[in-house]
Design a protein around this nucleic acid. Structure first.
Lengths: 243, 243
DNA sequence: TTTAAATGTCTATTGATATAGACAACTATA
DNA sequence: TATAGTTGTCTATATCAATAGACATTTAAA
């Protein structure tokens, strides 16, 4: 934990410190003890007052990452970061494999609408053609991992929302609708600060970072079957691209 | 620009709004006019005071993204976001192609050291074996895009720092050292808040987001030749994975 | 030359953020 | 059972962030 913390940036010191400690935990920096260093030590390291460190730790405790015990110290409760391989065979549920016991996809809402320019480009259809839009949130062991907005060609996959609601999986829903296999064609990745809606849906520490993917899945003939914008809690996941 | 802005998150409203406007500009939301909406309109949209919007715009002006002109409005000066395809053939310089006129890689420092566990794992060598470490910053048309820390096996690529300093390109430096071709084996992507050092090196708006890649390049026999941790200014780049 | 619309500047007030110090309460250990 | 080390709580103060209102200044168009 080398670098210092910045002042007057519009990002409160306690938030910066919380982010740094969260990352240090995730990187295994405190694995030997299973505890975060004492508040006085952290305050010295970051060059801030102990009370500022306490604010950071309170935020991490709120997230359920650490638990402060009077007289003992601050214990690390969780340190996982889910890994998502991005390949031709990218699947949310199966890709997680043994990293979580249970993966669920929940349908928040859906509607039929006309494709805008972006969706049309992704699905290789004409703007204005009908598409089914689904808003979903995906959880690993009950912990929200990502929100997604997905579009499907309405003609071929009008039954998507219903199938997804039952199966809680895109792959299984596709299978129910007669598409036994599909491949990831393209993925774009960016990062932004989370907005209010995603903060709520993902139970994020407010002000957290989202990793955004825009992905196109096609059938085996290369015809686009899904265009999706997914928003991942950046402190809970990482992506891996194997070539 | 649908979602609202969050209060009491440790991230100041003016910073959140600056991030949102920057993204809207990048997405081409204001292309028709080439201007950001008036301060009063933005204040209404975000549900904040005009002065708060002014703070956000001042930050964007500081970044050189917009220029406020009294009596006229706030003009958009820059809106680019560089795209980095991540493939077997991922190259920083060549990958940029026509998106920038000039790509340069600058060597900040280098040293020979012993591989720690992480580097050893990436390079498939034993911890403690000698490696050459290089700290670099890469610029597109003079604008910093990423900082990188790269490790190379010392025996085979001890001349890396010198070659890189002359060629300003990893690909060309490899070529000088007898490696005419190499491929990207794996890439991991995460996102964090920038620390002080990277904020300075990348000339970032303080508190900005970094996209982090951890990448392994190998020669054509699959022997690792480079392990690199690159830190990209998230508001200036996106990654694309084509499968 | 007006006038509307936009940004620029100033004052004032409130709440969040950060620092500082003192001391209480609890835990583990010598 | 002391004692050192740790987290918890309290008070006080200074600075930053955000709101509010008023008015000046500049631009472009009527």
């Amino acid at each position: 934990m080398a670098g210092q913390v910045q002042r007057q940036t519009g990002v409160a010191l306690w938030r910066q410190i919380a982010d740094r400690i969260r990352q240090a935990i995730s990187a295994g920096a405190y694995d030997e003890t299973g505890m975060v260093p004492p508040e006085t030590v952290l305050a010295l390291q970051f060059g801030v007052n102990r009370h500022t460190v306490r604010s950071a730790i309170a935020a991490l405790a709120q997230e359920g990452i650490v638990r402060a015990v009077q007289g003992r110290g601050t214990l690390i409760e969780r340190k996982e970061r889910l890994n998502f391989p991005i390949t031709k065979r990218t699947r949310f549920t199966a890709g997680i494999g043994e990293q979580a016991r249970e993966m669920r996809g929940l349908l928040l809402s859906y509607s039929e609408e006309k494709a805008d320019a972006e969706v049309a480009r992704g699905l290789k259809i004409r703007p204005g053609e009908p598409v089914v839009r689904m808003e979903t949130v995906r959880k690993a062991d009950g912990r929200p991992v990502s929100c997604a907005t997905a579009w499907f060609p309405a003609g071929r996959f009008g039954g998507m929302p219903d199938a997804y609601k039952r199966t809680e999986s895109i792959t299984k829903a596709f299978a129910e609708l007669g598409l036994s296999d599909y491949v990831r064609a393209t993925t774009e990745i960016t990062a932004v600060h989370a907005d209010e809606a995603d903060t709520a849906a993902l139970e994020l520490a407010p002000g957290a970072i989202l990793l955004i993917t825009k992905a196109v899945n096609t059938d085996l003939e290369g015809v686009p079957v899904q265009y999706a914008i997914s928003r991942f809690a950046a402190d809970r996941v990482q992506f891996t691209i194997e070539n």
